[in-house]
Design a protein around this nucleic acid. Structure first.
Lengths: 254, 254
DNA sequence: CGCGTTCTTGAGGATTGTCAATGGAAGTGG
DNA sequence: CCACTTCCATTGACAATCCTCAAGAACGCG
């Protein structure tokens, strides 16, 4: 049932069938259904359990005291809501459901016990955390260095890559629950400018976005425009061969 | 000798004297001296050891293929260079020494063995990783939402808080090895605009910066201007009481 | 002292933001 | 099912922030 989670498990970790069994068994029990707009995590929470998002999207965000909101990252299916799986601190940010969302829950104790018994599972969660950190770093580069057009394009490239990983972007198309104000909060732009940037991406024949459906018309073109970092897709960090490929891919752009 | 590292150990973890002994013993051996401009980490590296920065500053950065550079975070004394202490992946970014730098090294195996024996030490590294993640998230908010003036102010606030933690900002003053081009790469601004923003901060009587010395003249004023998030300072995440304080502190600003 | 790096300044322009208004889509309640 | 409300997308006009280019001054290093 947690199809996408299984897919990510296979890509990220090298789990034995029994390991996967054990993990999924813990997840299966009481699924949590939350409507759009629910808080998945509130700032200040101390999570006693670890939750995996099975369907829907979450927005991980922070506020400035005057109301400015910045989205830190998007929580997609197979992602873990709690970033502090290993150190149980209080949450320093919130997560809200951008769409109706289903979560699976594991108690911290059960997970800890499982990780102690099965190093491969432990490694999976560590690996996943590392991936999340990589995404945060990419977000900094994205917002700090890219123009509005590149920034938006890059966001779509990242989303596509991540969804493709879990098999949720068939036909270069996927459901896209964010409103333009969310895109603005994610990219550090104004909603008006997001609107105009989207129009430009459409005009360039790179994407289609309407009715909560995003379709990428030209992946290569979009990635070139975005100066997309393909290392994100391979989730292993830049391997020796991929470091070379990195050079190659990017030299085309420049 | 690694005075600042000891200080951070005390603040972040609750290590027993013997734990601290054991950790520092591993660190003491062969210190690494690197001149300004050295690569502490190159993208693609697979680190076989974990290194703690004892003195100097490191710049953690990424390039876009057309040469744009974004600094992800600053590596200060007592910080760990390798963010993948627990999952030994390849580095997806580089670190360069912004000043003459001294590193202490622990082999991965030794550290792993030590962490297996001493849970408190393991927890320290997990805690430190979590802190680093928090800083990355704050950087996203900073670049995404704050104006140039606020952004620069916030950067100085963060630096001061982090240096103060390790006792390296006596008298609200500390050595500041970055050039304006570095500040630009850290904040996503142009060097020219960094220059003008610095002038404004000086004119507002908030800071003094010359001869590689940064002095904060008015911490409260600087933090108010920056909309500084004080949770960074308390490294525990927002506690129930600090969540309240969070409200209080920030309402003054708004 | 001389040279390269860094800092500073000016002018002009491009990108992006703000304000305000309109129209459509979606959801609500009767 | 329709009227009503609310949210969301879109557009225009204008303004502000920030960037680029370019040149000169100051600083620091050998």
């Amino acid at each position: 049932m947690p199809h996408q989670f299984l897919r990510k498990l296979e890509r990220l970790g090298s789990l034995s069938p029994t390991d996967k069994e054990a993990l999924v068994a813990l997840l299966r029990r009481p699924l949590i259904n939350l409507p759009k707009g629910s808080d998945l995590i509130r700032i200040g929470d101390i999570a006693s359990s670890i939750r995996v998002l099975l369907s829907g999207w979450g927005l991980r965000y922070k506020f400035l005291p005057d109301g400015r909101r910045q989205i830190l990252s998007l929580v997609l299916p197979a992602d873990i809501c709690e970033m502090n799986v290993f150190s149980s601190l209080q949450m320093d940010h919130s997560i809200i459901a951008a769409a109706p969302t289903v979560l699976a829950e594991i108690s911290r104790e059960d997970l800890q016990a499982l990780m102690a018994r099965k190093p491969a599972i432990r490694n999976y969660f560590l690996r996943d955390l590392q991936l999340t950190i990589g995404l945060l770093q990419e977000a900094i580069v994205n917002i700090g260095q890219r123009t509005a057009l590149e920034r938006m394009a890059n966001l779509f490239c990242e989303l596509h890559a991540r969804l493709d990983l879990i098999g949720s972007a068939p036909d270069m198309q996927f459901e896209f629950p964010l409103v333009q104000a969310d895109l603005a909060a994610a990219t550090g732009l104004s909603t008006v400018h997001v609107n105009r940037t989207l129009q430009e991406l459409r005009h360039l024949q790179l994407i289609t976005l309407s009715g909560k459906q995003l379709r990428i018309l030209d992946v290569a073109g979009l990635r070139a425009l975005a100066l997309f970092n393909p290392d994100l897709v391979r989730l292993t960090g830049p391997s020796q061969t991929s470091a070379d490929r990195f050079q190659l891919d990017w030299s085309i752009v420049g």
